[in-house]
Structure formats: C-alpha cells, structure tokens
Simulated scan of single mutants.
Amino acid sequence: MVDVTLDDSDGSTVVVKLQTETWELNIRAPLADLARLHDIRQADWASRRSLAVGTCAGSPVFWTANEDQATILIGHDDETWDIGISLPIETVDEIVRLAGERI
C-alpha cells in the first residue's frame, strides 16, 4: 500500500508525497498536470507512450502503465531514466482524485 498526500508547495505547484514503510518519493507538479494522469492507462510502456508530469530532484518525471501497475520514471527522458518505481495503478487514481478536489 502506498500512502498519497498532496501538500502545497507554492502558488502554482503541489508536492505529491508517495510513501510506504520503507520509502518516500516527492514529486512537484501543477494540479492541472496531475489531473492529466487520468489518462495513465493509455500511457502504455510497450508502445513507448508516457506522460511527462512533474519533477523530482530536479529531473522530469514520466508515468507509464502496464495492466494493473503504474511505473514512475525519473530522469533525463523516458528511455534513459535514473530511478524507476512501480506501484498499483490505483495509487495514480488517488493522485488524480486528490488533484481534482483542489482544482
């Protein structure tokens, strides 16, 4: 299970905090960009489609899906990332829901 929270960062972005007992990931993005993640199921990695939404540690964040899993790729691009994390696609649905409540 991945806990999801949205914290205010500044007037134009929020921080998405994804957290488990063993790791935490913070992604900064505008709310409108986070709402675009409702299309995550069309961002099929096998077809080389991803959604560029947010930044983490100064690098772009790319989102892809494969069946019931989402993958977050952090790095220069979606082909040569530095960090990759897989999580349940329902976690991305929760991000979209929380972003929608704030728009």
Rank of each mutant, 00 (worst) to 15 (best):
A70H: 01
D78K: 06
S47I: 03
G54M: 02
I40G: 04
V92W: 04
E21T: 10
T64L: 11
Q19T: 11
A52W: 01
A35C: 08
E79K: 14
W63L: 06
V92K: 04
V2Y: 13
T22D: 14
L34N: 07
V96R: 09
S9A: 12
W63Y: 09
G100P: 04
D68M: 09
S9T: 03
I89F: 02
I74K: 07
D68K: 10
I74R: 04
V53S: 04
D33P: 00
E67F: 09
R102K: 12
D8V: 07
A46P: 00
V61W: 06
R36L: 08
M1P: 11
L18V: 00
E21C: 03
H38S: 10
S86E: 15
T13L: 10
G54V: 00
I83H: 05
E79M: 13
A35D: 11
V4A: 00
T5W: 02
V4F: 01
H76F: 11
T5P: 02
L34E: 08
T13F: 06
A46T: 12
T20R: 01
L18S: 00
G58Q: 11
I27G: 05
A46S: 12
I27V: 15
I27F: 13
L34W: 05
V14E: 05
T22Y: 14
D77Q: 09
L87I: 12
A35W: 02
W63P: 05
